Computed example of a mutant assay.
Amino acid sequence: MPTEPALKHKEYDNLPRSVVVMESRWQAGMSTGWHSHPKAQLLYATEGVMVVHTETGSWVIPPNRALWVATGLRHTVSMSGDVWMRTAYIETGQVPALPQASCAINVSPLLRELLVEAVRLSPTEAPEGRDARLLALLIDEIRDSATMPLHLYLPMPSDARLRSICDGLVAQPSEAASVAQWAASIHVAERTLHRLFAQETGMTFAQWREQARLLHALRRIAKGDKVIDIAIDCGYASPSAFTAMFRRHFGITPSGFYQ
């Protein structure tokens, strides 16, 4: 069943305003459940970390980033820590030159304050004067914000046997069992496991496991955990090995990723 905060957005989905901003509070571990919106959405948390899943990938969004969610995209948001969320719903047909695809963006101090202030505006009355200028500046800041490489492609297989493996790797990313061991656990040949992973996810087993570890690492980094602890938790023998993998994927070290 949807949680009470998750129901709040339905009041905003069909408002006639082209831009409207709401706030909601979520406790650690809560989730919105799968849903979509008839408008584009900017998700931003002034506190806590959001993990946003879609059917093809995931984003980890700390308080200095926001996620632009394209119109109609099915997604679910999980809360890492208590989250104070600000959400802008934007009718892109009336507000041109905004992103067409979902993406993470940098949140400047100005954009942060605009989102916080916009929550106080009436969701039903047409904005005039200062309110109209505030929303216009909010849109300008979204347009000018730099996009960030936070997206991880992590498709979940529909095959129940593979799903059990993937669920296990997500729950325990340090798990170091070989492909042969995983294949034996679901009673198939190693070659069959490789073939099934390619068919179901478009990735090799090794690629999928690395993506799962990266997603786990981004959650930990966003919470401020130490790189050495994250490396061990992700199954790497040393922080340098983990950092090399992380840099290969994102082009930056873990310690500098969210700065």
Rank of each mutant, 00 (worst) to 15 (best):
E190D: 08
A177S: 15
S31G: 13
A237K: 14
P123V: 02
L134K: 00
E91K: 15
R130S: 11
V20G: 05
F242L: 03
T56D: 09
S108T: 15
T192Y: 01
Q41D: 12
E4C: 04
T243K: 08
Y153C: 11
L193G: 00
W34A: 11
R191T: 07
L42S: 04
M22N: 12
I105Q: 01
Y89F: 15
G129W: 03
A126Y: 09
A126I: 10
D229L: 14
G202L: 04
S240N: 13
A40T: 08
V21R: 06
I252L: 07
T32F: 10
R191N: 08
R74N: 11
L135E: 00
L193F: 01
H194W: 05
D140N: 15
P99Y: 10
L196G: 01
R17T: 06
Q100N: 13
R120C: 08
V188Q: 02
S80D: 14
P123N: 04
V49Y: 00
Q41V: 15
R219F: 04
D13N: 14
L162S: 02
A28W: 08
E141R: 15
Q181N: 07
W68V: 00
Q207T: 11
G256P: 02
N14I: 06
E117N: 12
P2W: 03
R25Q: 10
F197S: 01
A146R: 15
E117D: 13
S174E: 12
G57V: 03
V107E: 01
L218W: 03
P149W: 04
S24K: 08
H151A: 14
A222T: 05
Y44I: 07
R112S: 14
E23M: 12
K10H: 12
T71W: 00
E4H: 09
E4G: 08
E91I: 06
M148E: 12
A132L: 14
L193N: 01
Q259M: 09
Q199G: 13
A66H: 00
S102P: 12
V107F: 07
R219K: 13
S78N: 15
H75C: 03
A6L: 06
V116N: 07
Q207S: 13
R219S: 11
T147I: 09
R248F: 04
R86T: 09
A118Q: 03
R220S: 10
E128K: 13
F257T: 00
A88E: 06
T243R: 10
L42G: 03
W84C: 09
P62V: 00
Q100K: 15
M30P: 08
A146D: 15
Q207G: 09
M148D: 08
A237G: 14
Y44G: 04
V69P: 01
S255E: 11
A189L: 06
